[in-house]
Amino acid sequence: MSAIINVQNLSKTYDSGFQALRDVSLEIQRGEIFALLGPNGAGKTTMISIICGIVNPSSGVITADGHDIIRDFRAARSKIGLVPQELCTDGFESVISTVNFSRGLFGRAPNKAYIEQILRQLSLWDKRDSRIMELSGGMKRRVMIAKALSHEPEILFLDEPTAGVDVELRRDMWEMVRGLRERGVTIILTTHYIEEAEEMADRIGVISRGELILVEEKSALMDKLGQKQLRLQLQKPLLALPAELKDYPLSLTDDGLELIYHFDTQGDQTGIADLFRRLDEHGIDYKDLRSKQRSLEEIFVSLVTERASADTEAAR
């Protein structure tokens, strides 16, 4: 895959002095779904806004499909669609007229068939003549997506696309995003729902305090940082861990009915077979067992927390 978006040494300092981005470099591959994760104020929206032309960069170079976003802004922007975080719509306009407006704005000739196709895909066709102000929040979010897709972009930015929408609509949107990817559209999404990134993304980027602290294939990230847990449900409760088992990465739940063993899937030995032998030697019987991988959310929280601690330490 080749890079469709190339961000080099991007920095942004607002007039207030707040440094939102610090020397960020990133390549987004053509046709992938890239999830940009980060806590509030990390710089996700600033980065998207700069790439789309809404915010001026302080320094750095960005290209979209090979076109510099400043010197060759027409070619660059015509490739990009944006669904912003906020529900920004002209409430007095009808659904179809606002979508047609967006298509025209991006320099495309009217295409009734294509607009109908988008509105049908997003279940908006029946509402095409309704004023936007009459729609529910979820339907307004669909209108925003329809507007972003109206000019047939090759790159789609989704800034918190499912914020405030119900579970059903979220699942619909995930389906729609996958469908777009199958058609070759590159998708960059920011989200607070880590589950969303875990479900859809090919690659994950984590941004914290304006710095890109990690970019990794999702599966590799999960393998590398995704420690596993083995939970053993005991036949009889234990009052405490036997001293002979203290060297194992084991913990006992408060009720003494469950033993939790942490292991690394990347290690040469997981130590599970050895653990079972030792439990048998000590007459500790179990009636059930299950293993669980550390979720992306847990990985994300630990990454951001570690980073924040490191920054605090460095500041001392």
């Binding site: 920004c88 967006s102 704005l105």
Partner: peptide, 18 residues
């Protein structure tokens, strides 16, 4: 002013328009 007020100015600023 109205697009600035209701936030739809994002679309004008991100469009390939001089």
């Amino acid at each position: 002013y109205f697009p600035k007020y209701n936030g739809t100015i994002y679309e004008i600023l991100s469009a390939p328009i001089s």
